[in-house]
């Protein structure tokens, strides 16, 4: 015990070999849970569509653009992570700022995309359209529900990035303290890939 406390570089003699850091497993399990929750939503979509009486619509180009935004944001995150590995601390901050900026752009574009859908009489819930008809597109409701739940995941990711950014300003992110940055970047890539998957799913599974 004494030995451990003074020199915690030695792997824990107290335990069996660890698979990876606890926090990393926790994050992965959260992501698994999240995948299952989107799995539930997309399966519901498939089951409902298979039942017939399903109206399709074109997805506004803005959501396609957002896939690019996701990639840019992920690229910034990778830049931050690589910089941290070489102790280029200033660049870590630039990378994180970039990732967050593109994250915000993503959110704004999503909102604009939803507005555009509304202008085509596609709503989350039934509304009176301009010609007085009640819009009853269940496929639209699914689109809004799925993208909105993803939206919340992105906001969570931004909060995560903000915490890491504050750490970076406190000089707590560097070559030998990469865990929080690495976890944030894993999560950030995850929500990015999730969007690209959801986009492809919603666009082509029609």
């Amino acid at each position: 015990m004494e030995l451990n406390a003074t020199n915690n570089k030695i792997s824990q003699p107290d335990t069996q070999p660890q698979i990876m850091e606890n926090q990393r497993i926790i994050l992965w399990l959260f992501m698994v849970a999240s995948i299952l929750s989107f799995g539930g939503l997309t399966s519901a979509y498939i089951v409902r569509m298979a039942a017939g009486n399903w109206l399709t619509f074109d997805i506004p180009i803005i959501f396609t653009v957002n896939c690019g935004v996701v990639l840019l944001s992920s690229a910034c995150m990778m830049y931050a992570y690589r910089s941290a590995k070489t102790d280029a601390l200033e660049r870590v901050k630039y990378g994180l700022w970039g990732a967050m900026l593109f994250g915000l752009v993503f959110l704004v574009l999503q909102l604009m995309g939803w507005k555009e859908l509304n202008s085509h009489d596609i709503y989350f819930s039934p509304r009176r359209s301009d010609n007085g008809d009640l819009t009853k597109l269940i496929s639209g409701s699914f689109f809004f529900a799925i993208s909105a739940i993803h939206f919340i995941h992105v906001i969570a990711g931004l909060i995560f990035l903000l915490i890491v950014l504050v750490k970076a300003y406190k000089m707590k992110i560097h070559k030998r303290n990469l865990l929080s940055l690495s976890l944030a970047s894993t999560y950030w890539h995850f929500v990015g890939i999730l969007w690209i998957y959801l986009y492809l799913f919603l666009k082509y599974w029609n």
């Binding site: 399990l29 849970a33 799995g39 519901a44 819930s125 009853k136 409701s141």
Partner: peptide, 25 residues
Amino acid sequence: GILSFPVLLSGSLLLVFDRSFGTSF
């Protein structure tokens, strides 16, 4: 629990939407 509760969470959210936001899932 980790694999099955998230699916109920999704289902419950859709139910909340139906009840409170006028959707018809």
